[in-house]
Design a protein around this nucleic acid. Structure first.
Lengths: 214, 214
DNA sequence: TAGATTGTTAATCGATTAACAATC
DNA sequence: TAGATTGTTAATCGATTAACAATC
């Protein structure tokens, strides 16, 4: 998130949603779709859809619309899904195990190569075929295996230290579930999933609604 | 997210971050902070901080800054944390269990009253003191217990049906982890955590960085 | 060809930043 | 009082929406 992009983050964060809806259309055997039709199901304006897509090229055809399969594939490529990604999960607690079990990620090309934890009771166990390794062996493992994305599922106290260890071993992308903002070198990408922030947004809206009613 | 607010969503989504940083300052026994100082640690501009806060009132004092404890409490109230919330988790798979185990939510006033699943192997089990109940008993349970927030951790196929069942029993806020956009009545609040969209944002930035380098 | 729909430019809207008078 | 920093207005910037010529 630290890097500036020619394409705005607002657009980038809409891309996965296009990808998901196009996949759905594809599954329903729909061959073509206009920005207006897509607008009705995805909830963005037709104008915005055309603007968004034209950041990356003219995928449509005047008078016809967009070919669903082609557009789906193109957006997949734009999102970097034309390759696989090796990941590791650091922190094999409930959340880490949940992510390891979430086989859906594999359909997108994510391969979890190992998990790491400090808890002796967890070390050696396997989640599906993914081994939970001793946290102390992290550096050794990273020197042997090319890892693209480190997934941090530790508590907030450990997260920064883990991020330091990952980045110093050449991991350049971090998916962070710990409720902290990590400090990382400029060329490292961090994407946060801050669950509590999401939940507090919900309670804000909950409270606001009640105030409207009264 | 469907409701329009006097305060923009951009501001609302920053509030939990203020809350978190102020809590940290409080723990470090810092009594006062200026928008400029806060700017340096939180990464928003001082101007934006003052603008954000003034959506809700003048919490500061000219020449002094903000009282950390007071501001923390005020933002807590704004976020609706001056009360508790009863929740249930629907879908007791890995993610549902991870959330049930995440005791941190309790510090914010969230109480998980039950979990629901269709899997007979799970029904009757307890996660901490939270019982996993038969999905068939959802309506019965909701008629007996006031639930503020329904947390959907099912697969995408079941999510909409669950949302329908929740809303028709009077649950008016949904925290949705299934990768679908739920259709709900106008007065129901939905906050989504779409993990795959977060991850695809990361891969987009990953790919983009590689293109910059070449 | 006529109709439809894109790609793109221009207009509008909203959010962020800058500036500064008010005031503690 | 003098210095600091807010609250708030004005200016800028960026994102969304509208309009329409290009063209399939």
């Amino acid at each position: 998130m630290s890097r500036k992009s020619r394409v705005s983050m607002a657009v980038i964060r809409r891309l996965p949603k296009y990808h998901r809806y196009l996949n759905e259309l594809l599954n329903r055997d729909i061959k073509r779709i206009s920005s207006k039709e897509l607008s009705e199901i995805i909830g963005f304006t037709a104008s915005q859809i055309r603007q968004d897509l034209n950041n990356f090229g003219g995928f449509g055809q005047q008078g016809y619309g967009y070919n669903v399969e082609e557009l789906y594939n193109e957006i997949g490529k734009i999102l970097g899904l034309d390759r696989g990604y090796n990941t590791i999960i650091i922190g094999a607690g409930n959340l880490g195990q949940a992510l390891a079990n979430y086989s859906n990620f594999e359909k997108f090309g994510f391969r979890c190569k190992a998990m790491f934890d400090v808890n002796p009771k967890l070390i050696g166990l396997k989640i599906r075929d993914i081994e939970i390794k001793d946290m102390d062996t992290l550096e050794e493992f990273l020197s042997e295996t090319q890892i693209d994305i480190g997934i941090i599922c530790t508590n907030k106290e450990s997260a920064q230290l883990i991020a330091d260890r990952l980045t110093s071993c050449g991991v350049t992308a971090i998916w962070n579930f710990a409720p902290v903002d990590l400090k990382v070198p400029d060329d490292v990408i961090v994407e946060n999933v801050h669950l509590i922030e999401s939940l507090l947004t919900l309670t804000y809206l909950y409270k606001e609604r009640e105030e409207e009613e009264s």
